[in-house]
Design a binder for these strands. Structure first.
Lengths: 259, 259
DNA sequence: CGGTATTTTGAGTATCGTCAAGGCCAGTGG
DNA sequence: CCACTGGCCTTGACGATACTCAAAATACCG
């Protein structure tokens, strides 16, 4: 049972406050209400198959989805993570080129494709939101490239943790800001993370503990990491100068205030 | 001299036959004619600065541009290559987050921003072309992620060569198909390539020669590579099952026909 | 509390990065 | 026409890092 029976919502409460959808007009939101269903997925469950053209357009309400390409030899390589507010199953473009799987328990707003695309033609604000979402994804994909280009595993981990900070900023059950430190929940296991960062679980483990020994982070649990020194991480990661730092600065400020 | 004095073209001859612009209506092409200029760039010349919002929207007519992010420590990391038919300086999105530099001598169709965006609002076919271009970039960025995720340098090179085959397919001065083999021109030097693939020139050199020793490729010149065994490359690269293989199959068929 | 999956550790090997030197090619100037 | 020069590519040697295989420890779940 991959879908939940009808759960039409009078008003997708989070829909209007997430991602690039916050600026949609009331009439557009109403129209979206009428064609959306809430679907729920269990960890490991497939949301969209590789190469399938999903019959709906989705927007993540909670949880994480992993995007993964299937390689010719059957292995899978993750190419990104979808979190709260991210959309998928984009129109214009035929089938998607990667599989989507729930990494955790996840809720998805599913919009019926035909009416959504119809609405798109008549609601410039929605179209704009969709395009911004795509451009956002593009920027993030390029950020990943920089991170993956780092030749030390510790550097890639550092970059990954900083990305988590940026993306989970404000989602408080994922990122908890304490006095002088930030706790981040790593949404995926070592195996998947190794896959994402182009390495092996063993190397990951060693690198995590190396970062811990250096004092930059602390391993509260395998999947719960306390960041003690953001700038040390940024230095490890060889962070890019443009967009990351803007977010990081905000994070650092917050840390100072609470310290 | 970064720009060429006015060179309005009665009809951008290649514009209508490249990328996703091939399906534009005549009236749209005429409108584009009116607002485009041809600009010429020398190798190494900057086309758009990091963080700048370019005053024009560009479309590559010939040559290659490299997209590179500037890291906090001043180093630069390449995140992609723009070739014939690719667009940049996208609208909707404020400043671009990477610098654009000519990797070779290059010609750019430059469209004045304001009239282009205006045209965009009234020409659905143009808007569609632009969106397809963006989605295309997104797919390619994800392909890069898979390639960079490969932990052997030979694998990353193999992936890179296959991408070149896919993208330069049909551009005959870059990709020449012989009997049982394909010759590809590598558009960038070892230093840039190392940067793009997250390694060093020395490792690249060794990996190239390792592939040559295995018989998969042949180094005609440092920047001219004859691919002798496409499937060996695909195996090295751990090629992804979806889109690459479709192109590869076509390539293999062609090879068999000419063999 | 036991069973299972995940994570961690260890030892040995392969690969890659680094530094330094050598070769190749094109452009320059005699 | 040839020697010279500078940039790029290649090669070699060595140390650092990461991968592999195997086993132990820990966390998770019922």
């Amino acid at each position: 049972m991959t879908t939940d029976p009808f759960h039409p919502q009078k008003r997708p409460s989070r829909l209007g406050s997430v991602g690039h959808m916050e600026k949609l007009e009331a009439s557009t939101l109403d129209a979206l209400d009428a064609i959306c269903r809430l679907r729920r997925f269990e960890p490991g469950q497939t949301v969209v198959l590789d190469g399938e053209r999903p019959e709906f357009i989705g927007c993540v309400r909670s949880g994480y989805l992993r995007m993964q390409k299937t390689l010719a030899d059957g292995r899978q390589h993750m190419v990104g993570l979808l979190v709260e507010g991210d959309m998928f199953g984009h129109m214009f473009n035929g089938p998607i080129k990667f599989a989507l799987e729930a990494a955790t328990e996840a809720e998805i707003w599913a919009f019926q494709r035909a009416p959504f695309e119809d609405l798109l033609l008549h609601a410039p604000d929605l179209e704009r939101a969709v395009i911004l979402n795509i451009l956002n994804e593009l920027d993030r994909a390029r950020d990943w490239m920089v991170i993956l280009g780092n030749n030390r595993v510790t550097g890639r981990i550092a970059g990954f943790l900083l990305v988590l900070c940026n993306r989970f900023f404000g989602v408080d059950h994922l990122l908890r800001i304490g006095s002088g430190s930030v706790d981040v929940k790593v949404p995926i296991g070592r195996h998947d993370l190794a896959n994402l960062l182009g390495t092996r679980p063993e190397s990951l483990s060693r690198a995590f503990h190396a970062l811990a020994d250096s004092g930059a982070i602390e391993l509260l649990k395998p999947d719960l990491i306390r960041i003690r020194d953001v700038s040390a991480l940024a230095a490890e990661a060889g962070e890019d100068a443009m967009d990351e730092n803007a977010h990081l600065r905000g994070l650092l400020q917050l840390l100072k205030k609470r310290a």
